[in-house]
């Protein structure tokens, strides 16, 4: 049993190495953070804030909410660190947790404003230079439902059944939202 344990630990280490050179470093930091080491947790924050902020910003559609959500995600991560077993990279675990935090917050918003589902997207800030910024602005301008499905599917690589489960909607609804989002973005960027 001991040998099996050892080899699985080595396999895990190798797998994590393959994923990213910093994954092992993250694993060590996460272990330390689990034991209450705030400095180690801050280092994890430094390493993962950018990726998480990109997610929050695109899902929320504005910087103010994104900042709140990012902070909430890290606070939640600190509270749930004991559930991080190291069988995936910390980044993967944290990203999944962030998605849940953001969607949890935005679902309440979606329930409060169902009209967003049929709203037409406003014009993106035309002053923003460069296509990438235009695209980011256009995504931000999408109605909440369409934007969230689009970001999860096209940016984050989630599949419709996963999105449907996350948002508590039908798979068909998820597809319709994606269709609306892409159509609106094509029009926005083509104009």
């Amino acid at each position: 049993m001991e040998r099996a344990g050892e080899s699985s630990v080595r396999e895990l280490a190798e797998r994590e190495m393959a994923v990213s050179g910093s994954a092992l470093e993250d694993a060590v930091l996460a272990e330390r953070a689990k034991a209450g080491d705030r400095a180690a947790f801050e280092q994890l924050y430094r390493g993962h804030a950018g990726r998480a902020y990109a997610l929050c910003l695109r899902l929320a559609g504005n910087a103010h909410d994104a900042e709140d959500l990012l902070q909430e995600a890290f606070v939640r991560a600190w509270q749930k660190l004991h559930t991080f077993r190291g069988d995936s990279a910390f980044g993967t675990w944290f990203h999944r947790l962030s998605v849940n935090v953001v969607i949890g917050a935005l679902r309440a918003k979606l329930r409060m404003r169902p009209a967003d589902y049929v709203e037409c997207p406003g014009r993106a800030a035309s002053a923003s230079p460069g296509l990438r910024l235009d695209l980011e602005a256009a995504i931000a301008q999408l109605p909440d439902g369409a934007r969230i499905v689009f970001v999860l599917h096209d940016v984050e690589g989630y599949r419709h059944p996963e999105i449907a489960a996350l948002l508590g909607i039908a798979v068909g609804t998820s597809k319709v939202q994606l269709h609306r989002a892409r159509h609106a973005l094509r029009k926005e960027l083509g104009s």
Partner: peptide, 28 residues
């Protein structure tokens, strides 16, 4: 297809415009 390629080119990481750690530390 153009949209898909632009979306694929979006940066994976966007640094927050301001320092957010202190707010997290206070909550911890």
């Amino acid at each position: 297809r153009v949209l898909a390629s632009h979306v694929a080119g979006l940066p994976k990481s966007v640094p927050p415009a301001r320092e957010l750690w202190p707010g997290i530390a206070v909550r911890l």
